[in-house]
Amino acid sequence: MKKNDIFLICGIIFIIACSFLLVFAFRSEGSRVLVVVDKEVYKEFDLNENTTYEIRQENGERNVIEIKDGYVRMTEASCPDKLCVKQGWIRYNYESITCLPNKVYVRISGGEEGELDAVAE
């Protein structure tokens, strides 16, 4: 190893630390859940309304999402790796769960209600 390698490692650790800090510092609670299938918005939900929903595509692929107490997760997926299911719950604005093989993702967004709440506070 050269001295430069150590600098490189320190530099990368610094960048990683900064990006984690930024993500945590600027995160805010979301209020809407967007379901996007093949680049098109498929359905929209209220994050505070408990529900489960099944996404069924024409090609036979399916995903099931569950919204509960302000959190969303993917409970079932027909994809082989099931990474989206393993990811667990999300709740903050701009967080998303992506199922790449099925071209499906759910994303939390602020929506108008979120902004109104923020003003009311």
């Binding site: 490692i9 993500v23 071209k103 993702y105």
Partner: peptide, 27 residues
Amino acid sequence: VAILYVNNTSIIYYLPFLMVSGLVSGT
């Protein structure tokens, strides 16, 4: 490619985690 594939820029949130992974495995 993943961002372009599903058109979800929020995937960028994975980047810090992936950088940790790349750093450890790369070393």
